[in-house]
């Protein structure tokens, strides 16, 4: 069975706390919709063949790669033999198609494969969640991150995509220039900085909230993936979680190598699945323990902070 995913790369604008709208480049899931940060989240089944069509409405070429997925890229090189794109290019106004098999369950980044230092920073990234065989969205008893025997059954699931925004880069690149030193001043969860992280999902260019709600005793699967260029360290206040997968490789297979952590560092591009039981009623802060990342520019509180509410 083949699932078609149609993506458009477009320019748009995002809102960061305390400043004017900022130009960005992002993916959208339909011709009529605007670009969004991060790109549309897709749910597919393990083993599905994905036929992804990328239509390029940006001023320059772009392309698409998936991280952690086996495929044969079709890189494009310039006259000097240097990479221009890590995969088939879509020219401005044109499109490109990619065929990928979602071979294993987990959370995977899709992102630009063309000049990623500029295009990924501009916002061309999103995630695809691959569901294990047997997963049925209508039947909570089938819900797990990685299927039977992996100890990843959950009642509540949340995907948190970490990112950074260097506003000078955005303005420079949108104006056709070349950026200099990378020095982001905004740090994002699902494309938003606190306090916007705790707002609900909406129809804006930053549609995904990062707030969480659960009842005491519910099993929460927190799926954190780092789309930024820097390392980030998530700390869960009042909760010690079990790390059940790293980079979408489940840790409980023939033996159980899952382990418990209160705070965990993610390198760029990496992901961890953290499983924990919702504690007593109340609010719990989840934040970046790199404490220079809990500000917007210099304003505290901001950046990578969200709240779990147990009621």
């Amino acid at each position: 069975m083949v699932t078609n995913i149609d993506l458009w790369a477009k320019s748009g604008s995002i809102i960061l706390p305390g400043r004017d709208p900022l130009p960005f480049w992002g993916f959208s899931g339909s011709a009529g919709a605007g670009a969004q940060l991060p790109g549309p989240r897709y749910d597919v089944m393990e083993g599905e063949s994905l036929h992804i069509t990328l239509s390029n409405q940006l001023p320059g070429t772009t392309s698409l790669v998936l991280s952690g997925v086996e495929f044969t890229p079709q890189p494009v090189k310039d006259g000097q033999g240097r990479f221009v794109s890590y995969n088939t290019e879509a020219a401005p106004g044109g499109s490109a198609a990619y065929d990928i098999v979602a071979a294993r369950p987990g959370v995977f980044l899709y992102q630009s494969g063309t000049a990623p230092e500029t295009q990924v920073q501009m916002g061309l990234y999103g995630v695809i969640v691959v569901r294990p065989l047997g997963y049925d969205p209508g039947n909570p008893s089938t819900w797990s991150g990685y299927g039977p025997g992996t100890g990843t059954e959950f009642d509540v699931e949340k995907v948190l995509v970490i990112g950074e925004v260097d506003t000078a880069w955005h303005e420079e690149i949108a104006g056709g220039g070349t950026p200099s030193d990378y020095d982001p001043g905004y740090f994002t969860l699902n494309g938003r900085s606190y306090p916007a992280t705790v707002d609900p999902d909406d129809a804006s260019s930053q549609p995904y909230g990062s707030g969480m709600a659960a009842a005491p005793g519910q099993r929460i699967l927190l799926r954190i993936i780092n789309a930024g260029f820097l390392n980030h360290t998530l700390s869960l206040d009042g909760v010690t979680a079990r790390v059940v997968a790293g980079d979408s490789w489940p840790l409980k297979t023939s033996i159980d190598t899952t382990y418990r952590k209160n705070t965990i560092t993610l390198g760029s591009g990496q992901s961890y699945d953290l499983l924990f039981t919702a504690p007593a009623t109340g609010k719990y802060v989840i934040y970046d323990r790199d404490l220079n990342h809990v500000v917007n520019a210099n304003q505290f509180p901001g950046g990578i902070i969200t709240i779990l509410e147990v009621t």
């Binding site: 360290t233 700390s235 033996i255 159980d256 190598t257 382990y259 952590k261 209160n262 705070t263 965990i264 560092t265 323990r289 790199d290 404490l291």
Partner: peptide
């Protein structure tokens, strides 16, 4: 199941 392992360099992360 013992999960301990040997390292010659341990990356000490903040808050950990």
């Amino acid at each position: 199941t013992d999960l301990s392992y040997k390292r010659f360099t341990v990356l000490v992360g903040p808050g950990q």
